[in-house]
Structures are given as structure tokens and as C-alpha cells.
Design a protein around this nucleic acid. Structure first.
Length: 604
RNA sequence: GCCCCGGUAGCUCAGCGGAUAGAGCAACGGCCUCCUAAGCCGUAGGUCGCAGGUUCGAGUCCUGCCCGGGGCGCCA
């Protein structure tokens, strides 16, 4: 018979794998005894690894300890395993221990250990799965940080979904996370943006003129429809006083030279002040769009840093002075270089161009210096994988500033290739040919989009088939999880339909869960027990996909249970226990979805 | 040429040095007088890119090669 009251055991306490730790303790005691008795040489030591066997029927936990000790002990692993088992202290949590295969020790735990998790979940509620492993460490998580030259597209979506889920998961794990967005509003691409807007503006003014040619739009300009909208804004504010004549525009063969020439012409003709004002209009317009798109995607930031402000407050000059002071800069070919090769980079990098302008890299050094000054214990940057070559030089510069490069962690997110059926959708910001994040959310829904993005490992290339997601949304895995949540809600609804009161979580926490003895109930309980360590693992490994996978597994176990057993209409005590079980499942589904920024619907 | 990330079932992908490599789609066969069948059960599907090496044990670690993506600017 199983005990009605579970042994006192700490579950899901801060930053722990309580069951594994308990088994580890018992094993340590056994080893100590064996050493004392001289059955094990004192120098025979091995890390005690307690894992969950992949295969069913091999118990709840297993250790390879005997195999690791076999060599130093000079005996067969199975023999060592038997000795360990014989020496293992009695413990109420352990129902059965056996030697298996090449020398594994398999543990089967008392059902009561898992039955206790229902009460744990219902008592903790939304906090179940939270832990203190992060110990309040201040983390800054910078993600998205898309250039303000156009709307967010589906490529940004992945970094957005990943970064936000990671922020939520790390917060649950006890880290103090600040979400940061860096606005690159100081570089040449902003000038190109102005040139694009002004070209569109000029077209608006002259469209009615005879002989007006439309094909003088710069080849390297940004071409999305939003450029026209910004041009309209500019026209509203300035009328036609910013007209200009792009003479000589078509002369250079090189489109890069052509756009630079155009920028110069516009600057000369409308004046630096107006140029800057147009830039401000464009920037505000686009940032507003980005903010709205992120909002629709369920993402908000705690802090926005503008590159222009970093420059304006003199941080770049200070950072470069500091580098110069430490001998990390030198002059060559008219430019100023950072000795990146001394910090493991492939080549030295320019920080001040021969025309005196600071490079993006220089600004980024200053920006990261400021981040360190803001007092974070750890910085995480989420970047697109195309920036990977940039990592060594930035870490090198941080080190050259006298800061600890280990506090800077860069997560590289691989691209998401978009498909419409079998055809790959070509994407280019400048040509304006892309699917925006907003369009994606409108087409497949916010929950499906976010879940899909976060289902893949960040360093895995992913294919996102729009056609499939649009045509057949039922195939989307998020519905499977949603359905599990809805089914539990509908059990509650049915209960009140029958005129029975729906017990609160608090009531159900006291249910006699020792009645949950069906195989499928045991599987569900084990799945629930795994949630806190899943969250912790996802936080420490920076891998939100673990939470997504976990939710799929939990939903699978729930649906299996639901189809095999009835919750309502069984004996009152069993009904109460099962209501507690499914409510615990619902709570964990809701908690897990919350960590991914996905809703948990009441009905479908 | 050098560097980074991948290559696992027809497709999309999991897999912490461990035992007989998994899931979801797609395919095939079953299951609703009963809490939502957006579900469940079953069948089939694999030389884990190739070749060596380390290990008691390799999809997992090391080396080389092949294929795909990305990066190697006084661009951002």
C-alpha cells in the first residue's frame, strides 16, 4: 500500500532538482560507507550524475556511478552497482532500486513523491516553476534592435520572440532582467533613409509636371510604401520649400557613390537643419511603427538607447580616449585603428575613418561601455547570425577598456527562411520586398507566430512556411496545447452546469492524491514534476525552446489521460483528486505559455 | 582561402558522453448515445552527411572531407 501522506520532501525549491539531489545524497552516503569499510579505495571518486532514463520501464531516475567507479575500483561495474545498492540508506521516497544493463542503477520512486506535486502546483499557482537560481542577478537583455530604416519584418520576429521569451524565463528563474532596445539612428543608413524620403517627396511635388521622370529614384534607396507615407508627413510640415534638383545623379556608375552624391546634393540644397529635421520626422515615424508592431506582438522594452545620444553625450570620445590611453589604438593610412588582433580577432579594425567619422564599431564600443557603467552583472546581446564576425572585435574592445569580456554574452540567432508553399520568399529591406512582422501576425495570429518561432533552437536555421501556417492552422502545435487548456476549463464549466460547486485551487490542494494510481495519472504527475527544472534549464542554457517542447509533452500526456479516464462522475473523492490533477495541469500549461508570451484561452 | 551555424524518418525538428535514437505533420488502419474527435489508440517509416580517432560506451567529443546557409569593408 502506498502511504496516504507523502514523505516530507522539498519540491521545486529554489534552483534545485530536488529528487535528483535527494538520490545524489543517498548515493554519497553509500559511497562514504563503502570507503569506510575499505570496499572502495579512497581515491576512487566520480561525479554523481543522476539522470532521467530516456526509456520507459527503467525507473524514474538512473545513475551511471558504478560504471564510472569500475575502473578506479578495479572491479566489474555490475558488482560495484550491487554493493552500492546494498549500502544505500533506507529512504521512504525510494520504492525500488535495481542494477540494469551494463551497470546502471535504476531508481523507482514512491508514487507519493509525485502525487505531492499536485498540492505544490495548486499552492504556488502562477509562481509554480519559478525559482531563485538567478539570485536577483541584474541582467540586461538587448534584442531586436532593428535599424530604424523600415518596419520590422519576419526576420526580426524570431529575435523578438526569442528575446522576450528568454527575458520571461530568466525572470521566472530569479534573474532581474531589463529589456533593452538599441536604436541605430546615427549612421549613414539614416542619411540614405532621408535621401529615399526626399526622392519620394520630390516626386510628390512634381508628378504633375510634364516630362517628369520617375526613374531617378536612387538604386540604393529604401523603397517600401512607408517611405511615401513619411514623404507625405514631410510635405505636410514643410510644404514644397524642400524641393531640390538632383543634378549629376545618374553620373556615377557605382550606386553607392550615387546615393552618397545624392545625400550631399540634398544636404547642400535644403540645408543641414532641414536635413536633420526630415531625419527626425522619419525616425519618429518608423520608431512609432516598430513600437506598435512589437506591442501587437506582445513585447515591450524597459529601456531604449539611441545611438545619437551615445554620440552626443561624448561617450564615444571618452571610450576612444580610454583605448588610446591603454595603447590599443594606432594611426595608419589616415585612419585610426583598434588593435583587435591582440584580442584574438582576425584583423585590426577601423574606429575613426580617414574623413574623421566614427565607425559603427566605435559607437558600439562606447555603447557597451555605458552598459557596463549601468551596473549590470551580466549583459546579453541577441544578434542575427550574420553579425557573428563582429563578436571577437567587440569582446576585444570591451577587454581593452579594462572590462570583463565574460560578462558580455552574445546569442546568435540563425535566419528564418520564409516560404510560400515550396517557394522561398526573397527578402531585402532596401527593395521593400519582405513580409512584415505585422503581416505575419495578422495572417497566422500572434500566438501561433510566437510559439512557432520559439519552438526551434536559436542556432538552428528554420523554415517558416507561411502557406502552411495560413491554410491549415489546425496543424499548428500551439492549438494542441491550447486545446488541452480549454478542455480542462470545460470540465469546470460542466461541473457547474451539473449544479456542483467548482472547488478552488486551495480546496483541491488538499485532495487525496494517493487515489491517483492509474498509469496515465502517474505519467501526468511525473510530467508536472519536471516543469521547474525545465524552466531553470531553459534559463541557464538560454534555450526557450525547452519550455515549448515541454508544453507539447505535457499536453500529450493530458490528452492521453483525458481520453482514457473520466474526471466527472467517478466516486467523489477520486473526482476531487482528478479535479486537482487537471487543475494542476491547467496551471502549468498557463504558466508555461506565459513564459513564451502565448495566451492560454478559456475556449476555442 | 579562412571563420561561424547546420546536415537525425517523406517534410519540419527534439535529443544533458550512456541502455532498443524520439515528437509533430504527411501515409495507412481503428475509436464519439460519455467532461469539446482542434482529441485518442495502433501500423509503417532511420547505414544519425562520409571516413578515421578518443572512450567500457559516440547522434553527442576530436581530426579530415562532402553538402547547405551565413560572415570575412575606412557598411550598418
Amino acid at each position: 500500500m502506498l502511504p496516504h501522506h507523502p514523505p516530507t520532501l522539498r519540491l521545486h525549491t529554489a534552483g534545485e532538482k530536488p529528487l535528483q539531489n535527494r538520490i545524489q545524497e543517498l548515493l554519497e552516503q553509500a559511497l562514504a560507507t563503502l570507503r569506510q569499510r575499505g570496499d572502495l579505495p579512497p581515491e576512487a571518486a566520480a561525479e554523481i550524475q543522476v539522470e532521467r532514463p530516456r526509456e520507459e520501464g527503467r525507473g524514474d531516475f538512473a545513475t551511471n556511478l558504478a560504471m564510472r567507479l569500475a575502473k578506479p575500483a578495479g572491479r566489474a561495474p555490475q558488482e560495484v552497482a550491487r554493493e552500492i545498492i546494498e549500502t544505500l540508506p533506507e529512504a521512504p521516497e525510494i520504492a525500488d532500486v535495481e542494477v540494469a544493463g551494463p551497470g546502471f542503477i535504476n531508481f523507482r520512486l514512491a508514487e507519493a513523491v509525485f502525487q505531492a506535486v499536485v498540492g505544490e502546483v495548486l499552492t504556488a499557482g502562477p509562481a509554480f516553476g519559478h525559482s531563485g537560481v538567478g539570485a536577483g542577478t541584474r541582467i540586461q537583455l538587448e534584442f531586436v534592435s532593428a535599424n530604424p530604416t523600415g518596419p520590422l519584418h519576419v526576420g526580426h520576429g524570431r529575435g523578438a520572440a526569442l528575446g522576450d521569451a528568454l527575458a520571461r524565463i530568466m525572470t521566472a528563474a530569479g534573474f532581474d532582467v531589463e529589456r533593452e532596445y538599441y536604436v541605430n539612428d546615427a549612421g549613414r543608413q539614416m542619411d540614405i533613409l532621408v535621401a529615399s524620403v526626399m526622392s519620394r517627396y520630390r516626386r510628390h511635388l512634381r508628378l504633375s509636371e510634364k516630362g517628369f521622370s520617375e526613374d531617378d529614384f536612387p538604386e540604393r534607396g529604401y523603397q517600401g510604401s512607408y517611405i511615401g507615407e513619411i514623404a507625405s508627413c514631410v510635405r505636410e510640415s514643410f510644404g514644397n520649400q524642400l524641393d531640390f534638383e538632383p543634378t549629376g545623379l545618374t553620373d556615377p556608375d557605382d550606386p553607392e557613390e550615387a546615393i552618397d552624391l545624392l545625400i550631399r546634393r540634398i544636404r547642400e540644397q535644403i540645408g543641414e537643419e532641414h536635413f536633420s529635421e526630415v531625419k527626425g520626422v522619419a525616425l519618429r515615424f518608423i520608431l512609432e511603427e516598430i513600437r506598435a508592431d512589437l506591442d501587437a506582438f506582445g513585447i515591450t522594452f524597459d529601456h531604449w538607447t539611441h545611438e545619437r545620444e551615445v554620440v552626443a553625450e561624448g561617450a564615444v570620445d571618452r571610450a576612444l580616449e580610454r583605448l588610446r590611453g591603454s595603447g590599443s589604438l594606432y594611426e595608419a593610412e589616415g585612419a585610426t585603428w583598434f588593435r583587435a588582433t591582440e584580442f584574438g580577432d582576425e584583423k585590426d579594425r577601423v574606429v575613426l575613418r580617414s574623413d574623421g567619422a566614427a565607425t559603427y564599431f566605435a559607437n558600439d564600443i562606447a555603447y557597451h561601455g555605458l552598459k557596463y557603467e549601468r551596473g549590470f552583472a551580466h549583459l546579453i546581446d541577441v544578434w542575427g547570425a550574420d553579425h557573428h564576425g563582429y563578436v571577437p572585435r567587440l569582446k576585444g574592445a570591451v577587454e581593452a577598456l579594462g572590462l570583463d569580456p565574460h560578462c558580455l554574452e552574445v546569442l546568435l540567432v540563425q535566419f528564418a527562411n520564409l516560404y510560400r508553399g515550396p517557394e522561398k520568399v526573397p527578402m531585402s529591406t532596401r527593395s521593400g520586398q519582405y513580409v512584415t512582422l505585422r503581416e505575419l501576425v495578422e495572417e497566422v495570429g500572434r500566438d501561433a507566430a510566437r510559439f512557432f518561432y520559439v519552438l526551434r533552437r536559436p542556432d538552428q536555421h528554420m523554415d517558416f512556411d507561411l502557406e502552411l501556417a495560413k491554410q491549415d492552422t489546425e496543424d499548428n502545435p500551439v492549438y494542441y496545447i491550447h486545446y488541452a487548456h480549454v478542455r480542462i476549463r470545460s470540465i469546470h464549466a460542466k461541473l457547474s452546469e451539473r449544479g456542483e460547486p467548482v472547488p478552488s485551487s486551495k480546496d483541491l490542494a488538499g485532495a487525496d492524491t494517493s487515489l491517483l494510481r492509474e498509469e496515465k495519472e502517474g505519467r501526468l504527475l511525473r510530467e508536472l514534476q519536471r516543469f521547474p527544472e525545465t524552466v531553470e534549464g531553459a534559463a541557464l542554457a538560454r534555450e526557450p525552446h525547452r519550455v515549448a517542447r515541454y508544453l507539447q509533452d505535457l499536453a500529450t500526456e493530458f490528452h492521453g489521460f483525458y481520453n482514457a479516464h473520466r474526471v466527472l462522475g467517478v466516486e467523489p473523492e477520486l473526482q476531487r483528486a482528478r479535479l486537482g490533477l487537471v487543475e494542476a495541469v491547467r496551471q502549468v500549461l498557463a504558466n508555461g505559455l506565459e513564459l513564451l508570451g502565448v495566451a492560454a484561452p478559456e475556449r476555442m
